[in-house]
Design a protein around this nucleic acid. Sequence first.
RNA 1: GGAGAGGUGGCCGAGUGGUUGAUGGCUCCGGUCUUGAAAACCGGCAUACCUGAAAGGGUAUCGGGGGUUCGAAUCCCUCCCUCUCCGCCA
Length: 430
Amino acid sequence: MLDLNFVRDNLPLVEEKLRQRGMNPADVLKDFHALDTERRQAITQNETLQARRNRASEEIAKLKKSGQDATALIQETKDLREQIQTSEKKAADAEVRLREILTAIPNLPHASVPVGTSAEQNVEARRWGSPPQFDFKPKPHWELGEELGVLDLERAAKISGARFAVYWALGARLERALSNFMLDLHTRDHGYTEVLPPYMVNSESMYGTGQLPKFASDLFRVPHGEKDLWLIPTAEVPVTNLYRDEVLDAAGLPISLTAYTPCFRSEAGSYGKDVRGIIRQHQFQKVELVKFARPENSYDELEELTRNAEAVLQQLGLHYRVMTLCTADMGFSSAKTYDIEVWLPGQGLFREISSCSNFEAFQARRANIRYRPEGKNKTELVHTLNGSALAVGRTWVAILENYQQADGSIRIPEALQPYMGADKIPARST
RNA sequence: GGAGAGGUGGCCGAGUGGUUGAUGGCUCCGGUCUUGAAAACCGGCAUACCUGAAAGGGUAUCGGGGGUUCGAAUCCCUCCCUCUCCGCCA
């Protein structure tokens, strides 16, 4: 959420940034200006009435103390009460409508974000390694997984449905090895603290990180008594909300957390997209990095967080490129995003395996996460950042496709071998 | 699931209908003292919103919502959360 005063005072800038995102400012802002005025008038009127009532009440107290009659004044405040109830409702109404508009405004792209109209205009920031060379035609992971007996989509469909997967034997072990390897790397070498959060959260948390109210259809909702719980679409939600409504110790910033969790996404509206293999699933696992940073250096933290995610791919020897998302391709809450795309030789393309974003104060304002700068009495909103490091399922895919051998086996990269307890996934003997 | 206790400012903790936004302590900030620091002492310190050029003025907030009352941190209803005991349970 943007700051109300900021939007009011910088309307032309906000409109320009919305256009850069490919949106029509009029559709997003609607009658913001009129509503803003209406809201303030309603509040002023309401508070004027309340002030009158308060003065009368004080007067009544004085009269009663000195034993005088206060009947007339009491009657007056009774009348006032009805007027106040009306004006209160009017003010609350305007507040709600204005807030609806405000919460629907996406974050403004940072000045360093390339302006573009589609994903085509994302800018490659850098590229690491080189694609592996094959003297045979590399296969996609869904063929490899089936031939090796480590991936079972048929039975997953039977027990759950489309967009679910069952991993068998060394396939299951590879998932576990990857997640352990990533968590160890981030906690040991990159200074992150590991957390294991709940996989279901309440609506307030989904609101805090921006999934609600706009994107409910992307989520799995779990009815629970009067209220709903939601399956987390990313660890970003529970981990960022850890500090919702808190004032953080300035000396402790930045706070760097990592979490391995399953992620659940309804993928409504993506029918027919990525139907082969396990690229797009209702449930996948991910190691997430989350940072709470001071505003003045949050962009340095974004660079570091992105490098931390890249380190996973480097240690696994996987070729990748880093893309700076253009204004049109960024998520709703983000001010700047880097996507890391890993090379998948079986499909002959780069595929997103991580997305690292700085949300600046956008989430912190919604979730009310603040800190007190040294020497100041006022609190300030922190900046929140997060990125996948990495999406484990897609890393699993990258290992299979990049390390497939002519004999049908999969070589395990050295860094992963202690976690696998093996140097390859052998081809089936048949 | 049953019974009971409790939720007050960044933290701890008073306060049961009328200048209580709220005593006190801690933290933090400024100052005095000190070679420097600590200690001690003095002073300051909630948040949001409305209004105003500013100084200032105003309104709301004692877990959330609703009610009683001229007036609620204080009384009533309801929801949420925490703790203790019992039951059940991985």
